[in-house]
Amino acid sequence: MKRLAESMWQRPSLWEWWVPLAWLAALLGMVLAIPWLEDVFRQIAPNSRSVIYQRNAFLTLVVNHMAIVGVASLVAIIAGVGAAVMVTRSWGRDFLPLVAQLASMGQTFPPVAVLALSVPMLGFGTEPTIVALVLYGLLPIVRNTLVGLQGIDADVLEAARGMGMSGGQVLWQVEFPLALTVIVAGIRTSVTINIATAAIGSTIGAKTLGEPIIAGIVNGNTAYILQGALLIALLALCVDSAFERVSRHL
């Protein structure tokens, strides 16, 4: 709490963000540098005809990958936080076990299976990938939102109601601020997992950083695999460290 009060007074400086910015620079640097590193990758896959993945530009893949994860996460956040809020209201409490169960089922269901099942309904490409990622990313968000909301001191909520705050005022002025750290931690887990999971979308034709990996596996080209994996790892580190920064301000 004290830190919050102090950080409000500090001018937000770019310097605080150097870790995520460094990872971002590394990511962009790698995107630009890979085409120039033919000699390096030649060492890794000496027998392949081409050692730099060229079907789509890496920058396109990074942007697309991020867009898919972004849309999926946004939907998962709205649905997950919404569901958790609903089942912690007095009128929705009956659905609490159901929602908790559905969310854990989403997690036990392998993303590949969701992809396979959604192709007949949604076809190939981006949409089924987004569906799979939403389902997959829901659990950490629902679980953490529930933990955060249920962890609030009952006396605080009793006082809030007793003072005459409406349900909405209690939610926005008391519950969300007090549960925010835990909720953001859930979103962070969800987004980071989904950056890695999104790669699987390329098995059904979504344009993600999984594309070079799958092409590499199919053709036995280690250099392709390495390029995809490297960029996914950097992207995940970049986003994760950005979350770390944000959650320090909460």
Partner: peptide, 8 residues
């Protein structure tokens, strides 16, 4: 109330 219920 007993435990004040102040908003932390």
């Amino acid at each position: 109330i007993q435990n004040t219920g102040l908003f932390p």
